[in-house]
């Protein structure tokens, strides 16, 4: 084998990750002179015959199919503009927002979404020039009424969600809060125990490299909740 690192090892830009080109190059790596190098400061993942590097820091880049949490920043004649903590902004067309018939000249688009509203929204398509189209078709998409939004690094989102949503379901069940984790690192929390839920999510982010994190968090939540009563 020509791997020179172990999976989840930390790598820096320009560092060799495969000494040879018998691996497929996934995202975050490039091939030169018969070797594969990392593009990012991040962690390397080896598949059976592919290799990729996940960046540790960096801004969220929209990808098709992602559910994200954004804020409406502009209402136009037939569409809304959505910002979501990224270098780019998204555009939500009226036809992707509702199935109702809307008379553009008569009806007020702010009845649906107004400037400042938080929404859970799907990235429908991203062009090469980074024009981002959004959609509200997915059943997880909705206007977020009340609650609050906290921010975590986008690279930690998979850890907060956990395998098959295990981690976030646990926080959800124990605190009784409504939680939506956007792929862009924005997390919406609503409920009586929102403080605890936010604290727990920050704890998951801080300790994301620990083993048995699900159990640790479970114990942490049980302890905290006991103290309340």
């Amino acid at each position: 084998m020509s791997r020179v690192k172990d999976s989840n090892d930390i790598v820096t830009p320009g560092e060799v990750v495969v000494d040879g080109n018998d691996f497929y190059t996934n995202s975050g790596v490039y091939e030169e002179n018969g070797k594969i190098y990392s593009k990012y400061f991040g962690t390397v993942r080896y598949g059976d015959n592919a290799v990729q590097v996940k960046p540790m820091h960096g801004r969220y880049m929209p990808e098709e199919g992602d559910i994200i949490i954004g804020e409406i920043t502009r209402v136009s004649y037939s569409r809304w503009t959505v910002e979501f903590n990224s270098p780019y902004e998204g555009s939500l067309d009226i036809s992707e927002a509702t199935d109702e018939y809307v008379d553009l000249d008569e009806d007020d688009l702010t009845d649906f979404y107004d400037v400042g509203d938080a929404v859970a929204i799907e990235v429908q398509s991203v062009t090469k020039g980074m024009d981002v189209d959004m959609s509200m078709d997915d059943k997880r998409c909705k206007k977020l009424e009340g609650g609050r939004v906290i921010e975590i690094p986008p690279s930690k989102v998979p850890r907060v969600i956990g395998k098959g949503g295990k981690m976030i379901k646990q926080v959800n069940n124990k605190t009784g809060c409504n939680i939506i984790v956007g792929q862009n690192g924005q997390v919406w929390i609503k409920g009586d125990n929102a403080n605890l839920a936010a604290q727990t999510i920050h704890k998951i982010v801080d300790e994301s490299q620990m083993d048995n994190l699900t159990e640790t968090i479970s114990e942490f939540l049980d302890n905290e909740l006991e103290g309340d009563n």
């Binding site: 830009p13 975050g28 190098y37 593009k39 990012y40 400061f41 960046p55 540790m56 820091h57 960096g58």
Partner: peptide, 11 residues
């Protein structure tokens, strides 16, 4: 730049 998560050929 590396710390900011920029994709780069090297340092």
């Amino acid at each position: 730049l590396a710390d900011a998560g920029m994709p780069m050929k090297g340092l």
